[in-house]
Computed example of a mutant assay.
Amino acid sequence: MTAMDFPARTFGVRTGPGVHIHGFEMGPADGAPVVILHGLAGSAREFFTTARALPEFRTIVVDLRGHGRSTTRPGDLSREAFVADVVRVIESVVSAPVTLIGQSLGGHTAMLVAAARPELVSRLVLLESGAGGGGGQDHEHLGRYFRSWPLPFASRTTAREFLGDGPLAQAWVADLEERADGLWTRFEADVMVAAINAVAAPRWDEWESIAAPALVVYGEHGMFTAEDKTEFCERGRNVQRVDLAGASHDSHLDAFDSWMKALRQFMDA
């Protein structure tokens, strides 16, 4: 069978008062389970191509709280709330240890899940992620950028004209929500700022406690310095590192073949 033989199936899980986590499931029900977590201001759809390139696995792709089709404005945007959502999804949808994959904010979340509930994570894959930090930097500049978007967009063509035609912009345009008055993002600027600000405190204790095999993948032109990458990998307990030439922070979008090669080699070992 090919990847396209396994259409996406949707699911929803309530993880707390007023919080609904949405996701998609692909692949055979008896396949080894994989859970994928997207980054800030992204959604599960960004990883559909990755999921479909793993046709023999049962792959769960999650919309994190505040993103995609999950609750847009949850009251709690702490790291612990994101972790609790993922734990609830694994326990209720999969009910087995998983290969947990996360990019950026999703990678930080995946790391904390593996530390808090090691029995749920058999292998860990972190794409363009780290222990956190940034010296308490306020990411309001991201809020200003997202608030500058002239919402609603009249059409996807209008959205492309404003956002550009890069891989990340294409993902944003594809995921816009159609409403009666036009096309809207599936995230809100202030929620994104609060979510990323919560990553400011580095979580070295959690990272250093993880015994599961971990693949750490960086883009050559990603957001981390050479020193950041070296320190993070050296302080991990069971880490394999791969660097993707020419790739950005969104390597799963702009360096897909290299990303899948690294992922496949790790998962097939």
Rank of each mutant, 00 (worst) to 15 (best):
M4N: 11
D5C: 09
R9Y: 07
T10Q: 14
F11E: 00
G12M: 11
P17D: 15
G18E: 03
G18C: 07
V19C: 06
H20S: 12
H22R: 15
P28T: 13
V34D: 02
H38C: 02
H38E: 04
G39D: 07
L40T: 06
L40D: 03
G42H: 01
G42L: 00
S43P: 00
S43Q: 13
R45S: 02
F47K: 01
A53H: 06
P55R: 10
E56C: 07
F57Q: 10
R58P: 04
T59R: 07
I60P: 02
D63I: 05
L64A: 13
H67E: 01
H67K: 05
R69P: 07
T72N: 03
T72I: 09
D76A: 04
A81V: 12
F82D: 07
A84P: 06
V87H: 01
I90L: 02
S92C: 06
L100H: 04
G102W: 04
G102D: 09
G102I: 01
S104R: 03
S104P: 08
L105F: 01
H108F: 05
V113N: 07
V113C: 11
A114K: 09
A115Q: 03
A115I: 11
A116R: 14
R117F: 13
R117N: 14
R117Q: 15
P118S: 09
P118C: 11
L120C: 12
S122N: 14
L127A: 11
E128P: 12
S129W: 13
G133E: 01
H139P: 00
E140F: 03
H141G: 00
L142C: 04
Y145M: 09
W149M: 14
L151Q: 14
L151S: 06
F153G: 06
T157I: 05
D165I: 01
A169S: 15
A171V: 08
W172N: 05
D175Y: 03
D175W: 01
A180N: 12
D181N: 12
D181H: 14
D181P: 00
T185G: 03
V191D: 00
V193F: 15
V193E: 07
I196H: 02
N197E: 02
A200E: 13
R203N: 06
W204G: 13
A211T: 12
A211K: 04
P213C: 03
A214K: 02
A214T: 15
V217E: 08
E220C: 12
G222E: 10
M223I: 09
M223L: 13
T225L: 08
T230Y: 00
E231R: 15
F232V: 04
C233K: 01
C233T: 14
E234L: 08
E234V: 03
A245K: 15
D250Q: 10
D250L: 05
S251A: 15
S251M: 04
S251V: 01
S251G: 12
H252K: 10
A255S: 14
D257R: 14
S258T: 01
M260H: 06
M260P: 00
K261V: 00
R264Y: 10
Q265I: 07
F266K: 11
